[in-house]
Lab assay of single mutants.
Amino acid sequence: SDFTIRIGDRTLHLKNVSEEILKILEELLRRGIDFEELRKIVEELIK
């Protein structure tokens, strides 16, 4: 499924993301992860 994360004025667009990855990202966001850290993790996950 497609997913968009907005943190402040920044946006991260994800396409064809599995439910498992979404759950991980949601947990990281709940813990207050930094946007740049989140972006790096996402890039690793979707390689």
Rank of each mutant, 00 (worst) to 15 (best):
V17T: 03
E20M: 05
I7D: 03
I5H: 01
R6W: 00
E27R: 05
F35L: 06
E44C: 09
G32T: 11
R31Q: 13
E44L: 09
I7W: 04
D2W: 00
K40I: 12
L29G: 04
R6V: 14
E26R: 10
E44I: 08
D34C: 01
I41D: 03
S1G: 14
K40P: 08
L28P: 03
L38V: 07
G32Q: 12
L12G: 00
E27F: 05
I41V: 14
H13R: 06
V17H: 01
E43A: 14
L29D: 03
E37R: 05
L45C: 03
L12W: 02
L12S: 01
R10D: 15
V17I: 11
L29E: 03
L12Y: 06
L22G: 08
R31H: 11
S1T: 14
L12Q: 01
E44A: 11
E43C: 06
L29F: 04
E19A: 11
S18M: 02
K23Q: 11
F35N: 04
G32E: 14
T11V: 15
S18K: 08
E36K: 04
D9M: 02
S1A: 10
E27C: 06
R10W: 10
E19M: 15
K23S: 13
L28N: 07
L38I: 10
V17Q: 02
I5N: 00
E27N: 11
D9E: 12
E44V: 10
T11A: 06
K15H: 12
L22E: 05
I21Y: 06
F3S: 04
S18R: 04
S1L: 15
L25F: 04
T4Q: 10
K47Q: 08
K47N: 12
L22M: 10
G8H: 02
T11N: 08
E37H: 11
L28S: 08
N16K: 03
I24H: 12
L29Y: 04
I7E: 02
I33N: 07
S18G: 06
V42R: 00
I46S: 10
K15I: 06
N16H: 08
G8I: 01
K23F: 07
K40Y: 12
I24D: 07
D34I: 07
E37Q: 13
L29M: 11
V17F: 03
R10G: 08
I41S: 10
D34S: 12
R10E: 15
T4W: 01
L28R: 06
E37M: 10
K23W: 06
S18L: 02
L22A: 08
L12R: 00
K15D: 04
L29Q: 06
L45E: 09
L22Q: 15
L45D: 04
I21E: 15
E20H: 10
F3N: 02
L14C: 02
I46L: 13
K40L: 14
R10Q: 14
V42M: 05
K23P: 12
F3C: 10
E26V: 05
L14I: 11
D34T: 14
E20Y: 08
L14P: 01
S18P: 13
T4Y: 02
V42I: 11
S18A: 04
I46H: 10
D2H: 00
T11S: 12
L45F: 07
R10P: 00
R31N: 15
K23T: 14
V42E: 01
D34Y: 06
L45H: 07
G32A: 12
E44W: 06
K40H: 13
E20T: 13
L45Q: 08
E44P: 07
G8F: 02
I21S: 11
K40A: 14
I21W: 10
L22F: 10
V17N: 01
G32S: 11
R39F: 12
L38G: 01
L14S: 01
V17C: 02
L28E: 09
K40T: 14
E20G: 10
I7K: 01
V42S: 13
I5S: 00
I24T: 11
E20S: 11
I46T: 12
L38E: 01
E27H: 08
F3K: 07
E43H: 14
D34W: 03
E36N: 13
L14A: 03
I33Y: 08
R6P: 02
E20C: 03
L45W: 11
T11G: 03
H13F: 05
H13G: 02
L12F: 05
D2R: 00
E20L: 07
K23A: 15
E26K: 13
H13N: 07
L29W: 04
E19R: 06
V17W: 02
N16P: 01
L45K: 08
L14N: 00
E20D: 14
R39S: 11
L22P: 04
E44D: 14
I7N: 01
R6F: 01
K15C: 04
D2S: 01
D34L: 10
R39V: 13
E44N: 14
G8T: 01
R6I: 15
E26N: 10
K23G: 12
I5Y: 00
I7L: 08
R39N: 14
V42Q: 02
I46D: 13
L22T: 12
I33G: 07
E20R: 06
E44M: 09
V42A: 14
G32R: 03
I46Q: 11
E43Y: 08
D9P: 02
I33V: 09
T4C: 04
K15M: 06
G32P: 14
L14Q: 01
E26S: 13
I33A: 09
L22D: 02
R31V: 15
E26C: 05
R6Q: 14
N16T: 03
G32D: 11
R6K: 14
R31L: 08
F3D: 01
L25C: 03
V17P: 05
R6Y: 01
L38Y: 03
K15P: 03
K23M: 15
E26W: 05
L12E: 01
H13T: 08
T4P: 02
L29A: 05
E27T: 08
E44T: 09
I41R: 09
I24M: 13
I24F: 13
R6N: 13
L22Y: 09
I24Q: 13
I46V: 15
E27Y: 04
D9V: 02
L38A: 02
S1F: 14
R30P: 04
D34Q: 15
H13L: 12
E44Y: 05
I24A: 11
S18Y: 01
E37P: 07
R31E: 08
I46P: 08
L25N: 00
K23H: 12
F35I: 04
R39C: 04
E44K: 11
R10A: 14
S18Q: 06
I33F: 06
K47P: 13
N16G: 12
F3T: 07
E37T: 14
F35A: 05
R6L: 05
S18N: 09
E19Q: 14
H13E: 13
I33W: 05
R39M: 14
